[in-house]
Amino acid sequence: MDVTLEHYLVVSGVLFSLGLLGVIMRRNLLVIYMCLELMLNAANLALVAMSRYNGNLDGQIMVFFIITVAAAEVAVGLALIVALYRRRQTAHVEDLTSLKS
């Protein structure tokens, strides 16, 4: 059986759903962050697969950009988490329900 575009898309979709499930269910900020990365990667996979099956490199360029943005995002996000932890001594979303204090 040949591997077609749908195979990749299904893998990407399942991965995305897993990430989403993690984001909603988990309560540790860091794990939520990891799940976000997972979702981004799922999108990347879909883009690369599309690029391959459409014979067009633009999708891969997009992935390149996404990776860069994700790297910047991770850096800023983790810095925020560290700052938050310093102040509140927790990385648990249920303890972080108000903006002030």
Binding site: V23, I32, V93, L96, T97, L99
Partner: peptide
């Protein structure tokens, strides 16, 4: 505005 991140995400 519950402050619950999970709610927002949902």
């Amino acid at each position: 505005q519950t402050g619950s991140l999970q709610m927002y995400a949902f």
